[in-house]
Amino acid sequence: MVGGPIAGVDPVAILAGRMGDTALVLGHRISEWCGLAPALEEDIALANTALDLIGQAKLWLDLAGAREGLGRDADGLAYLRDAWDFRNLLLVERPNGDFGDTILRQALFDGWHVQLLAGLRDSRDEQVAAIAAKASKEAAYHWQRSRETVIALGDGTEESHARMQAALVRAWPFVGEMFESDETDAALSSAGIAPAPATLSTSVMGAFEEMLAEATLRAPEVSRWQTGGRSGRMHTEHLGHMLSTMQWLQRAYPGCDW
C-alpha cells in the first residue's frame, strides 16, 4: 500500500486501506479495555464497538487486498506490514489513557466516521458502497453512545468534567487530519467514489461543537494539526508497540495456520 496515487494503483485500494487501518487500530485499542472497564455494562458495550470495528476492518482490508492485486488478504495486511505502511488516522493509534481519553477519542472518531460513511454509501464503487452501508448502521449507534457519554461526563461531577477537559486538550490536535486531502482523495472524489475529506469539515466540526457545548467543554486553540497517519508521512511511537503486540504470533511462527 502506498501513500499517493501512483501509476497502476487502484485508488480504491488506498481508500479501503485507510478505512481498514483506522478501523483496525481503533478496534484493537478498544479491545484492550476488555475486562477492565468502569462498569460491567460499559465493558460489554466497549467490546461491541471493538467487534464492529474489527469486523469493518476485515471487510475494508479484504477489499484493499483484492484491489491491490498482490494476493494479500485482510490478515496478510493486518499482521505482516510494519508501522510505516499503515495509513490510519493518528488519532486512533494513541494509547487508551483513562476512560475519558478513550470515550472522547471514540466520539471524535465516530462523529467523523458517520458523516464519511454517509458519503461512501453513495459511492459509485459498489463494494465501497456496500461496506459503507453495513458500517454506517454500526457507526450511528457508536456515535450516539460515545456522544452521550462525553456529554454526561463533561456535565457530571467536577472531577469528571476536569478529566474530560484534559482529555479534549490532548486529543483535539489530531482532529485536523480527518479533513486533509491529497491527490488520491482528489481522484476518488472526481470519480464519485468517495467524498473529498475537506467537504466533511463543516458538518463534522458543527457536530463536535454541539457536543462540546452540551458537555460544557472547550476545544483548545490549535496552531498546527498533528497529521501524517493517513498519508504515511508520520506516525506516533505508539503504533509500533501496538503492532509488535498484535503481530507477534504471526511473526514468531510464520506461515502457520491458526
Binding site: L24, H28, S31, E32, C34, G35, L36, L40, E41, D43, I44, A47, N48, A50, L51, I54, G55, A57, K58, A74, D75, A78, Y79, T245, M246, W248, L249, Q250, C256, W258
Partner: peptide, 28 residues
C-alpha cells in the same frame, strides 16, 4: 483477555473478544 491483543488472526481476535465479552455478561 490476556490474549485478545495477541490473537493470531482477525477472526480469532473477534471470536475471543466475543467470548470474553460473554463472560462479562454472565457475571452481570
Amino acid at each position: 483477555g490476556n490474549w485478545i491483543t495477541r490473537a493470531p488472526t482477525l477472526e480469532r481476535k473477534m471470536i475471543l473478544l466475543a467470548k470474553v465479552q460473554d463472560e462479562a455478561g454472565h457475571g452481570l
